[in-house]
Design a protein around this nucleic acid. Structure first.
Lengths: 106, 106
DNA sequence: ACCAATCTATAGACTGTCTACATGTAGACA
DNA sequence: TGTCTACATGTAGACAGTCTATAGATTGGT
């Protein structure tokens, strides 16, 4: 799966997995891999900047914890993050409908 | 509809409309607007570079014509363009399935 | 001693899309 | 005559999100 097709959709995917339970970066990558049936393997260089971006936008809040000597920064959805996710789900439906309609052979 | 979500999909959309009939750039923009129910209004600064990119890749061939004093560069799918379109339709199905699966609320 | 897995993070490159600009014709309207 | 809209192509430069590559650290297995 080429990189560009993900562009603009990664944020939604992250918000969606964090919506179900608060997760740290590494676990988000795992969750996306599992939920996509192995199709999605997002590199850390995409996820961590994405998380910072989403936190800067106010959609996520984060906090540090330590489990077995390992530092974890766990992210959770804020109220505006929930609203953003709902909006982005709608936008995805609209977008995918349009692309499917154009792409479908006549 | 934000610009980034289109990234990586515009090429497929162009190939799909040109597949049905050879079209020039301006007509491609029109066709995409019509087929998307007005959702897609791709700026010329995206379409023309895209057409050149696709021609450079060997997916499109082009030729000039003049209709009523207006220069038109009409594009048609090449054999490898047909193959690329078929592959990209498959990729879209895979991609949209994955995103839908992750985005769908549990 | 070494290596794989876990965990966070940054720097810099890449590239496709965007806005803005540049150019020109045809036809309608005042 | 002048102006406007639609038609038609194209480039330059800005923008931004993704990528690769690199860095550092802990834990646990062999």
């Amino acid at each position: 799966m080429k990189a560009d097709v993900l562009r603009g959709h990664l944020d939604s995917l992250i918000l969606a997995v964090v919506d179900e339970e608060p997760l740290h970066g590494y676990a988000i990558i795992e969750a996306l891999r599992v939920r996509s049936g192995g199709q999605l393997d997002i590199p850390t260089g995409s996820v961590y900047p994405g998380l910072r971006r989403l936190e800067a936008a106010g959609y996520l809040t984060s906090g540090w914890s330590t489990t077995g000597g390992r530092r974890r920064r766990t992210y959770a959805l804020s109220a505006s993050g929930h609203r953003a996710l709902a909006a982005q789900r709608q936008e995805w439906i609209a977008f995918s409908s349009v692309v499917s309609a154009v792409l479908r052979p006549a």
